[in-house]
Nucleic acid binder design. Structure first.
Lengths: 236, 236
DNA sequence: GTCTTAATAGACCAAAGGGTTTAGACCGCT
DNA sequence: AGCGGTCTAAACCCTTTGGTCTATTAAGAC
């Protein structure tokens, strides 16, 4: 119940879902909660994004299984606008890869359409309060996927021997510059040594890394965690 | 209570904590639960790892703030043994970077020493059942950090213009091979074209990417999400 | 003091890479 | 039919890179 002097602002929500029935259902559900206002709805991502630009809602519930423009790209686009809008992904699939990608691009929550309405409300509440919400079941899936993607990388980098460890300090300096695309001449002047010295170092590097040219040396360095930087490949 | 015919196996646990008082406390706490057996304890990571190799426990509770060998390296070492041992990180700090790193290297849980004992027991239970457990509060911190590390990358890759988009299909094929360390001769034979044609393509690539040589072109490609692969830098 | 390793650097040669220009063939578009 | 873009390829020349061998110097190990 609201009285005069009750200044608590209702959180403003926009719903985006190509399934009109589901959209109405969710709207109905949320409207029963006095704390939230569904200020607009859309059945396509593009229309939804225009509405978001126009109304600057607090929260967006986004179905990510839509035809024309998929929900993930839409979320990415919304994040790029940087309006501070909190997006909750809504979908039927509890696919760990999907969840991972959604969280990666900035979703503040991810809930399944099959979940109880109380959970949806709770998720909105948490997200409005600046938290990130994942149902326990999805949280597990997310972490599995997360750890898997890093384990693969660990093996690449840690496994067996890392030939980079055989390099001397000076050789590492030289390689460091090579990984920045510097020429021999450039390396020479930056390290205050002659170009022939650079060549000597580079040749030693090639032998130690068992490669034939600069490009391969640079690739080896990058793929095997040069310095303390590790690199990971992940498809969005 | 156990009776004859009760075949349920107790989960076997090893505790590693350099603080002997805390270690005893936790041991006491767990022993009150009839489902778990603390089969060994250690006050240093190295001793702990030997015990793990010897006894193959189901779960390890590892304090990650220890002197000599830090707990994170210890976890990494345990994971590399690949014994299926589930490690729960135990610490006083709810530092999001720490949590991120612990989860990244394979911890199945992360709990704070200040947390209620019931939560510790619950975490063990979840982990024993193959799940991953993070207290809600830490979960939030983890996700913040996770999203932050990816947002930085997104900006690098998505921001402004990606010169790679100007490349023709053929040029992309050539560049793809260059990013694998293939020489011009190799590219020529793999694409069934002459070496001079390769050089023509490569020169066009250089101009479009505004670089001067193969190494720089390869680096540009790698850093700007060549194909649908994005690369991220993360220090372990 | 001797031995080893790392860093420095020169000479010389061969191979690969890079810049520029020109040009034919093919494709899609208007 | 003509225009523009792409793919193909050659000729010519110059620069950079890579391979090998040799040699001096300094630092550290034993």
């Amino acid at each position: 119940m609201r009285r005069i002097g009750d200044f608590k602002k209702k959180a403003r929500i926009i719903l985006i879902d190509d399934n009109f029935d589901h959209l109405s259902g969710v709207k109905e559900l949320i409207s029963m909660e006095s704390d939230y206002d569904v200020i607009a709805t859309a059945t396509s991502a593009n229309v939804g994004i225009s509405l978001i630009k126009k109304y600057r809602p607090d929260v967006v519930l986004m179905d990510i299984n839509m035809p024309e423009k998929d929900g993930l790209s839409a979320i990415q686009e919304i994040e790029k606008l940087d309006l501070g809008v909190k997006v909750i992904a809504l979908t039927g699939y509890d696919d760990s890869d999907l969840i991972f990608r959604a969280m990666k691009i900035g979703a503040k929550g991810y809930i399944l359409k099959t979940m109880a309405s109380a959970q949806l409300i709770y998720a909105i509440e948490e997200v409005v309060n600046g938290k990130i919400y994942l149902p326990a079941a999805l949280s597990s899936r997310f972490f599995e996927y997360f750890q898997k993607s890093f384990r693969e990388e660990m093996n690449e980098v840690t496994d067996e021997e890392n030939l980079l460890t055989y390099l001397t300090a000076r050789e590492e300096e030289v390689l460091e510059l090579l990984t920045q695309g510097v020429t021999y001449k450039g390396v020479a002047s930056q390290l205050f040594i002659s170009e022939t010295t650079v060549k000597t170092h580079v040749n030693n590097i090639f032998q130690k890394l068992q490669v034939n040219d600069r490009t391969q040396a640079v690739l080896y360095a990058l793929n095997n965690g040069f310095g303390n930087r590790k690199r990971m490949k992940v498809a969005i």
